[in-house]
Write a protein that binds this DNA or RNA. Structure first.
Length: 424
RNA sequence: GGAGAGGUGGGUGAGUGGCUGAAACCAGCAGUUUGCUAAACUGUCGUACAUGUCAAAGUGUACCGGGGGUUCGAAUCCCCCCCUCUCCGCCA
């Protein structure tokens, strides 16, 4: 969430920025938070003053008692009898205001960065880079959901049997391809200086709030009622929350982590013809990269992360394009997002395989993730993350784009990881 | 799951109702000393909100796992929850 102090000091910039998301009531949202904060401050001042007064009186009573002036103490005690009630009222009012302010702040999405174009949805995203030639397939080319049956490498029906729709079973070379991709991605990330982490894939409520999945998106996460835990929708959640309530020193930065986890998404109500096969799943595998850095470095880091992701796609010889998302298509928490999309030749569609975002201080504020700068001041850090990469659509791209009459060619870089160069 | 013990500042650890935002020690930081290192000595050393300021200093409030309660006053007493450790049970 945004800091109220920033709302107060940069109201114009924020309201104008939020307009790029197509938020119609941006000004009202911001002003109402500012107003609540002002009431909060006023009430806190009253409460603090009253507490200061009663602290002094309590101290005085103690001194009188010690001096043996019990009757004077009793007189004073009687004189301040009403204060407690008054204080209680003030404190209740204060916590109500704090709660309302928090709820209000939760409603305000991150402010799009300077470079983000205004826009309502996917049509307004800007293609900033394209790489690789679109493969020309014959008329008999199959979409991946046919190919996986033909070669018996991924089985949706078995998944339905043991779990449900959207939970495929990877078989034989299909399973091995998953493992190869995970290892390839992790090795590449490590070469780029990321430290590998293997976090839990269920998290508590506090972590959900830390990275901004909660409140609001609880419907997207699987929830384990009995223990109050959520299955992670992305490794971003556990890996970023590692640094909740942490104050770094400057020499510990930047933090560069990577991690492989399965990801779980309920995707309630988002099914249809365009999400057949591997295009959308309830459980999928992903390698994530996460960085925590100083504010002045975050845009250089964002470029670095994009370059890393693009390098992976180039090594896999997949044609892709890089999109700068417009305000209306960005996630709630992001200040900038670049999406990488692979062209899936049999579907004749671009598939999103990575999303690289700079959250600036939006997550750090909730996480209380800060560092002590050279002047000894504690200030919020910037967090960034990106998929590097999400597997299913990569698999879809590889299968579709590399199909030949006598099998599917495995990209050269993966062969050492797979142990085979063709699925036939 | 059952029984017991315990959760205090970066760490160790004192503190059972007022003089404790918190002793002492260690680590850290700054300085003195020093050919360098080490040692010694001196000082400093939590976070948040508010107030104040060009900035700061200063001042007020809150925080001793979390939440509630008792009291004029709570780290200290009471209740609930969470977590850690030990033993037993179960188990990859």
């Amino acid at each position: 969430m945004l800091q109220v102090s920033v709302l107060r000091e940069q109201r114009e910039r924020i309201v104008n920025g939020l307009a790029k998301r197509g938020l119609k009531d941006a000004a009202e949202l911001v002003d109402s938070a500012i107003a609540l904060d002002q009431s909060r401050k006023d009430t806190q001042k009253q409460a603090d003053d009253l507490k200061a007064k009663s602290n002094a009186e309590a101290k005085r009573i103690g001194e009188l008692m010690k001096a043996g002036k019990a009757d004077e103490a009793a007189t004073l005690r009687a004189a301040i009898a009403g204060e407690k009630e008054q204080l209680k009222t003030l404190e209740q009012e204060l916590s109500k205001l704090e709660e309302s302010l928090k709820v209000q702040l939760y409603k305000i999405p991150n402010v799009p960065a300077e470079r983000v174009p205004a826009g309502a949805g996917a049509d307004d995203n800007v293609t900033v880079h394209e790489h690789g030639a679109i493969p020309q397939l014959g008329a008999d080319a199959l979409p991946h959901w046919e190919l996986i049956k033909k070669y018996d490498i991924i089985d949706f029906d078995l998944g339905i049997k043991i779990t449900g729709a959207g939970f495929p079973v990877y078989k034989g070379k299909g399973a091995k391809l998953q493992r190869a991709l995970i290892n390839f991605f992790l090795d590449e990330a490590e070469k780029a200086g990321y430290r590998e982490m293997l976090p839990p894939i269920v998290v508590n409520e506090a972590s959900g709030y830390g990275t901004g999945q909660l409140p609001d998106k609880e419907g997207q996460m699987y929830f384990i009622q009995e223990d109050g835990l959520y299955l992670i929708p992305t490794a971003e959640v556990p890996i970023t929350n590692l640094y909740r309530d942490v104050i770094f020193t400057e020499d510990q930065l930047p933090v560069k982590n990577t991690g492989y986890t399965p990801c779980f998404r309920r995707e309630a109500g988002s099914w249809g013809a365009h999400v057949r096969g591997l295009n959308r799943l309830h459980q999928f595998d992903k390698v994530e990269i996460v960085q925590v850095c100083k504010p002045e470095d975050s845009y250089r880091v964002l470029d670095e992360m994009c370059t890393h992701v693009q390098g992976l796609l180039e090594k896999l010889e997949l044609p892709y394009r890089k999109l700068l998302l417009c305000g209306g298509d960005m996630g709630f928490n992001a200040a900038v997002t670049y999406d990488m999309e692979v062209f899936s030749a049999a579907q004749q569609r671009w598939l999103e395989v990575s999303s690289v975002s700079n959250f600036e201080t939006y997550q750090a504020n909730r996480l209380k993730l800060r560092y002590k700068n050279k002047e000894g001041k504690t200030q919020l850090l910037h967090t960034l993350n990106g998929s590097a990469l999400a597997l299913p659509r990569i698999v879809a791209g590889i299968l579709e784009n590399n199909q030949t009459p006598d099998g599917i060619n495995i990209p050269k870089v993966l062969v050492p990881f797979c142990g085979f160069d063709k699925i036939s």
